[in-house]
Design a protein around this nucleic acid. Structure first.
Lengths: 257, 257
DNA sequence: TCGTGATCTTTCATTTAGCGGAACGTGTGT
DNA sequence: ACACACGTTCCGCTAAATGAAAGATCACGA
């Protein structure tokens, strides 16, 4: 690859590497050593060390007494600021989905090897899905998680599948071959179902949010008796159009802010 | 400045610049144009543009319809990850508070317009406060929440007060003027009390964690009969010293793990 | 306590990725 | 349509990043 082509691709390799380091530590959910990070990211130790040092200087990471590195304080207010600046855009889309389907609408993003709910508008029913914003769930056993998984690069998917696929219920897909087939179906169909795989009595239908946002997924969920096949079929195009609106809003190529 | 001195300073100029960009947008609390960011940071527009593009690719920022840039959703799960990892490290301080006061100790952080419990060490009593780590509570009706609220910038406080101040119990402060007076008292006194405002029969005393960490608060809580005035008075300096130790620990470049 | 191996941290010659001025493209107002 | 302000892209150049090697530190076992 020629140098000019590399430059045209972005001129920000160092930034990407620093963010990779930070995300690795966030994914691990514990302090990580330089050697661990270096092995995971396939980077030389001095490079990782330099990036860690920069992130420590800025408060994004901090170093523990045993020389491992963990996340720093600076990320907390930034997370809150992002929530305030973007939450409004998502809430309108979620509220419309609730109005159209009657069920709870959720927005989830990839967080390491899990999905994390970042926004939710609850249905008006008292018997409804209750999930706190901020909660993390497995990828393989939830609708949003399977959508996210279906869009990850193959090596990442394989790494996740090498972990035990924990059975949350008797319906959970715990076999890698079966899960891979499910992911293929999801890619074909453009949506995923959670058929009591995460929680008995709960059904969920989820859709991806946009090609440019492979780490984001939208869903509605509710109790099995209410989440009929008719509702699911009706919900799918609504999810797709909601997802489109949300992606447009977030990417804002044509939408007013 | 010679090149070798510059290199010795870190070899991460690009990382620092990217973080500067992101922090500028976070501080502004609204979309910013390339020209604005460039002027603020004294960088050329193409440099800012390249950095913005990298941050957009990773989801840390997004671009609006009028070409301005704002924060992206990728920061939300990272902020939550930092919350959780901090909670783990706070456990020693919390355990000391429990040993000294006999009551449940909690660490909470600002999460949007709520407080989220990120760590807790329970008292040895069977009748004690039980709150799941990860749970979110209102700011206006909890000790930790009022501490956090007392340290937010005035426009944010006003925005929060424009929402209904929900009465969790008959003791909850639901009047904005009264709440403002309470926040002023908290700023003066350096601690907050929750006098059955969040839950009948529960009393709580909370303190801020450090000037540099205004999104964080520490508290002890317990049932009214045990949370005597004498205990509260005794607990306040313990909370302050615990808070100081915690802040030092979190802000230090190396901490015991 | 000492020795050793593992790992982290620093140094610096080399490479290349990032830089920024200039040119081009886009959006807005008249 | 035109002018102006600003965003975005291009590309030659060099400042910044890189990573192998050396030095420093840590943890563990004898």
């Amino acid at each position: 690859m020629s140098r000019s082509a590399e430059t045209a691709a972005g001129g920000a390799q160092t930034v990407h590497r620093a963010l990779d380091v930070m995300e690795a530590v966030a994914s691990a959910g514990r302090g990580m050593s330089i050697a661990e990070i270096a092995a995971l990211l396939q980077l030389p130790a001095p490079t990782v060390h330099r990036l860690c040092r920069a992130l420590v200087e800025r408060g994004y990471m901090r170093q523990l007494g045993d020389r491992r590195y963990t996340l720093g304080m600076r990320l907390m207010p930034l997370g809150n600021a992002a929530n305030q600046l973007t939450g409004v855009d998502a809430t309108a889309v979620l509220a419309d989905l609730v109005a159209e389907t009657g069920e709870t609408a959720n927005l989830a993003v990839l967080a390491g090897h899990q999905a994390e709910y970042v926004a939710q508008v609850p249905s008006g029913y008292t018997m409804r899905m209750f999930t706190e914003v901020g909660r993390r769930v497995d990828l393989h056993s939830t609708g949003v998680g399977k959508v996210l998984l279906s869009r990850l690069p193959r090596p990442t998917v394989e790494a996740i599948m090498r972990r035990p696929l924990v059975a949350r219920t008797p319906h959970t897909i715990t076999n890698a071959t079966a899960l891979e087939a499910e992911l293929e179906r999801i890619r074909e169909a453009g949506f995923a179902l959670d058929e009591q795989e995460q929680e008995i009595g709960v059904r969920c239908v989820a859709a991806p949010v946009g090609d440019e946002l492979p780490w984001m997924a939208l869903s509605i969920s509710g109790p099995l008796p209410r989440m009929s096949d008719e509702l699911v079929q009706r919900a799918i195009p609504l999810l797709h159009s909601g997802a489109r609106r949300l992606a447009e809003s977030l990417l804002a190529s044509k939408t007013d802010s």
